[in-house]
Design a protein around this nucleic acid. Structure first.
Length: 309
DNA sequence: TGCCAGGCCTTCC
DNA sequence: GGAAGGCATGGC
């Protein structure tokens, strides 16, 4: 498998321009986005669950810090009351080192269906998130909808996350594995997490004890990493692939949820229902390169166009 | 009011 | 090995 990232990356000549945000006094940093960037699509599409609209942009918590982001023309503007170098965080988080002009061109060349999905929202980014946070969020995601997942994550953070205050701002950090490991299944259920509570507490215990080393997953093959994740309670093929794609940077992962299943069946199988294994094999062969990016665009296209109808 | 949701697990055949 | 049913509950 040829990795696409090496040649999608261009030189790291990104420059930052610092200004002062008059609204809250935080230093703003501006990053050239190198291709389209649609913040609404990216932050509300069910990759991450901790962002809210705020004064023409978004506010959210990541890596323990509170961030404000907005897009202006070809720049991403980012500030934070606590992080001293929000631009460095944003560049990684929003996949800025990938040239999305080039990526979109590559994907459009794969087939007309993918081209349609890319053209529907070329500014959709693949977020590069923390593996632990991604693991927790996607354990909660099973048989659930995005607004409710956001609620659950919010409750989880305010119950077991550390509270931080900086000036006029306060926020909850994402709970550490140690913090969640101290919780019980019953407490999770009382918080409205349902039957997912047990999987959550077990995963926290394994991560905090070192039995499950999330950092090591990036060093493994995607298949090896997936196998380890799927040994955990409450983590099946789909959740594992989401963790690998959004949290570990395995760009060949291709999570198949109900929307992707529907989309693939509609686009490639004349609407005829297919077994999940058939769809996995199809995706493996058909989307040989940049599979994870293709999945992201197809998910957004299928879900959004369906909701419009 | 009833179906659905970024599914997984167990049981049954 | 694959299909069916159960699981909690808010959104639509």
């Amino acid at each position: 498998m040829i990795t696409q990232r090496s040649w999608l990356r261009a030189s790291r000549s990104t420059y930052f321009v610092k200004t002062i945000d008059e609204r809250d006094g935080n230093v703003e940093q501006r990053i050239p986005t190198r291709g389209p960037l649609d913040l609404a699509a990216t932050l509300e599409s069910g990759q991450s669950f901790r962002w809210e609209r705020h004064q023409g942009g978004y506010t959210g918590v990541a890596a323990g810090h509170l961030f404000f982001v907005r897009s202006e023309d070809t720049e991403l503007v980012v500030s934070s009351p606590s992080c001293t170098d929000p631009a460095s965080w944003a560049r990684a988080y929003f996949d800025i080192d990938t040239d999305y002009n080039e990526l979109c061109t590559l994907l459009r060349g794969s087939d007309s269906k993918v081209a349609e999905a890319v053209d529907y929202c070329p500014g959709l980014r693949l977020l590069r998130q923390d593996a632990w946070e991604t693991l927790v969020c996607f354990i909660l995601s099973q048989n659930n909808n995005i607004p409710r997942i956001k609620q659950m994550v919010h409750r989880l953070c305010s119950r077991w996350g550390a509270r931080r205050t900086e000036g006029a701002h306060c926020w909850w950090q994402f709970p550490s594995p140690e913090s969640l490991a101290s919780a019980t299944e019953e407490e999770g259920k009382q918080l409205g997490l349902g039957y997912r509570a047990l999987a959550l507490v077990e995963a926290a215990g394994k991560v905090s004890s070192g039995m499950l080393d999330l950092d090591s997953l990036s060093e493994m093959s995607t298949d090896e990493a997936r196998e380890i994740l799927m040994q955990q309670r409450g983590i099946g093929r789909k959740v594992a692939d989401c963790v690998l794609l959004f949290g570990v940077g395995k760009l060949d992962a291709f999570p198949i949820d109900v929307w992707i299943k529907r989309g693939l069946e509609h686009q490639y199988f004349a609407g005829e229902g297919q077994n999940l294994n058939v769809l996995r094999e199809f995706a493996q062969d058909h989307f040989e390169h940049h599979r994870g990016y293709a999945q992201n665009y197809l998910f957004y296209f299928t879900r959004s166009s369906s909701r419009k109808k």
